[in-house]
Nucleic acid binder design. Structure first.
Lengths: 190, 190
DNA sequence: GCCGGGCTTTTGTGATCACATTTGCCTCAT
DNA sequence: ATGAGGCAAATGTGATCACAAAAGCCCGGC
């Protein structure tokens, strides 16, 4: 999810097992579970690797984010008190730091943490799980793309999101979340 | 997905294995995969059963259907030619039959087939996969609820969906899909 | 120099096993 | 009759193994 693996990276059951000090059986279970969620792809011969997403697939996953995340944000809005907004601001400040370190994994992790922290307030576990599987599918690709174009600025739409939260303005919140999500991926496929 | 299992039904690895003539290992893999998709729930002791959804959870899953399915229908619309509409009408006619037989599983299966046939035309595999996991999660619950109130009439909104498809009217299509989806589940929780 | 065939290694699959935990039942005491 | 305690059966877990298929590699031929 955080882009620690690049697209197309191959995994082996024995390798994963050794890496975590377990035998093949639990490694296999974990890997196949990630396959079921779309986080890993299964070749016809049973080999497992991180997905190399086509442009169409990236756009489709971006559309899913654009559909689900504004809804989650809107549901979180009535419950978003000051303590939450403060926490979001703290997380957002952390993004500047990881950006300065050119830490792609840290950037993705912190950015997703910002979104997840907000959506947790929506009290919608099924929706949150669903959007997290989308993030999972995009992980390696986001890493490859962010890494390639060496992000230098923090996500500027987070500021709009925080403003809309403070104002309690739902339409504006939906819009700023949507643009934050699509903007991030728009420049990736371009 | 089709409601062959009622909510809360317990599964055992050895049981599933015997049922399909395999050992515990593949049974375990399959079961854990379904757990990952939310189709089955894992108790704290590792026992597996079909989920008994709370009313909140049902409403959340219904909201997901209401969010995703109109989008899929809208994306299918430009590609929905007469052959497809004919096929949908055939499927829809089949619903009348299973309803008359009071066959809850057949009803759910045919209803979902109607929706899936339409959404397949959207050329959006990730979205389709996502909505299918929602259906999967709702399967046992839909069965329990449809069975309880013994459905006697075919889903009347399918007619509106077909009309909107023929007219090429996207707003009307989105609306009729949305009401078909929410209506079906609305009367369930009431 | 390059490509193809064959061999070795790697890898996934499914089965089986020992073990710890849990479940469910049965019995007995109150 | 009821509840608690204990015992036996059932269940999930993780490890290991044999096997088949796939992948990678090396060598030889053109």
């Amino acid at each position: 999810m955080h882009g620690e693996l690049t697209p197309g990276a191959a995994l082996t059951l024995r390798g994963v097992g050794n890496q975590f000090g377990v035998s093949m059986t639990p490694a296999r279970e974990a890997v196949r579970r990630l396959v079921a969620e779309g986080a890993l792809t299964l070749s016809s011969s049973g080999r497992v690797s991180t997905p190399e997403l086509s442009q169409d697939r990236i756009e489709e996953l971006a559309a899913l984010r654009a559909l689900l995340e504004p809804e989650l944000a809107a549901r979180a809005l009535p419950r978003a008190h000051l303590a939450l907004i403060d926490r979001l601001q703290t997380i957002n400040a952390g993004i500047a730091e990881v950006v300065s370190r050119k830490d792609a994994v840290g950037y993705i992790r912190t950015n997703l943490e910002f979104h997840r922290t907000l959506y947790l307030r929506a009290q919608a576990p099924a929706m949150l799980a669903m959007i997290e599987t989308v993030w999972l599918q995009l992980g390696p690709t986001m890493r490859a793309l962010y890494g390639r174009l060496g992000r230098t600025e923090p996500p500027k739409h987070h500021h709009d999101i925080l403003a809309a939260l403070k104002a309690g303005d739902e339409p504006s919140l939906r819009l700023s979340v949507r643009t934050d999500v699509t903007q991030g991926l728009r420049l990736l496929v371009a």
